[in-house]
Computed example of a mutant assay.
Amino acid sequence: MTAEAKEMSTKDRLLEAGLAMLLKQGYNHLGIQALLAETGIPKGSFYHYFRSKEDFALQVVDRYMQQVHQGLDMSLGNRALPPLQRVRRFFELSREKYRSEGYLGCLLGGLGQELSGVSDTFRHKIEGCFNLIAERITDCLEEARQCGELAAEQDPRQLADRLLDCWEGAALRSRLRRDPGPLGAMLDFYFAAATR
């Protein structure tokens, strides 16, 4: 293994473990010592890759967004499905991911609730991530509007923003209940309302 590959694998291991721990414990309860114990990586290596706990968590958000964009690519890029079904498919895949993780929900929503009132850095970062997701969904909803799945007067960006707002609320309820019910009910309600 080359030194570069070893470095990447060490950083990747820290980010992957951090993602799981941030989902489960949140930022304030994430201990660097616990992270190092989980990964078996020495403290000096952590500070080789990350300036601080905040820098680490922001890079975990970037890692999470890579996964989100992969899900968006897979769903929104599936031209075998009509546009609205592609949008819904992204959220259905997200629901399945939440199930596999024990209904811990969305990292962006969790960190946003925990930190947006105390950290402008995290507030701006997370809002920026939601905007990127909304932009991707907006493009697909615009396609739905152009092909007649949505009424001509519908505003695709507004619909995308409302969809994310509703999803994040349902994700919180799903986390509280450890149950996918709120997520499915929200999708049914939203798509029925959007196509009236």
Rank of each mutant, 00 (worst) to 15 (best):
T2A: 06
E4R: 11
E7A: 14
S9F: 00
T10I: 14
T10C: 02
D12V: 03
R13T: 14
L14D: 02
L15G: 04
E16C: 05
E16T: 14
L19I: 03
L19D: 08
L19Q: 13
M21S: 11
L22T: 02
L22R: 01
Q25H: 13
Q25S: 12
N28Q: 08
L30H: 09
L30S: 05
A34H: 13
E38W: 05
G40F: 01
K43N: 13
K43V: 04
S45V: 08
D55G: 04
F56C: 06
Q59M: 11
M65L: 14
L72C: 09
M74N: 12
L76C: 08
G77V: 10
L84Y: 08
R88M: 13
F91P: 08
S94T: 15
R95Y: 01
K97E: 15
S100D: 12
G102Q: 12
G102T: 11
Y103C: 05
Y103F: 15
G105L: 03
C106K: 01
L107M: 04
E114N: 02
E114A: 02
L115Q: 00
F122P: 00
R123A: 01
K125D: 02
E127Q: 14
F130P: 01
L132Y: 08
I133C: 09
R136D: 10
R136V: 10
R136Y: 09
I137H: 05
L141A: 06
L141K: 07
E142S: 10
E142W: 09
Q146F: 08
C147S: 10
E149H: 07
A151Q: 13
A151W: 12
A152P: 11
A152Q: 14
Q154M: 14
Q158L: 15
L159M: 14
L159G: 06
A170C: 09
R177V: 00
G181K: 12
G184Y: 07
D188V: 02
F191L: 07
A193I: 12
T195N: 03
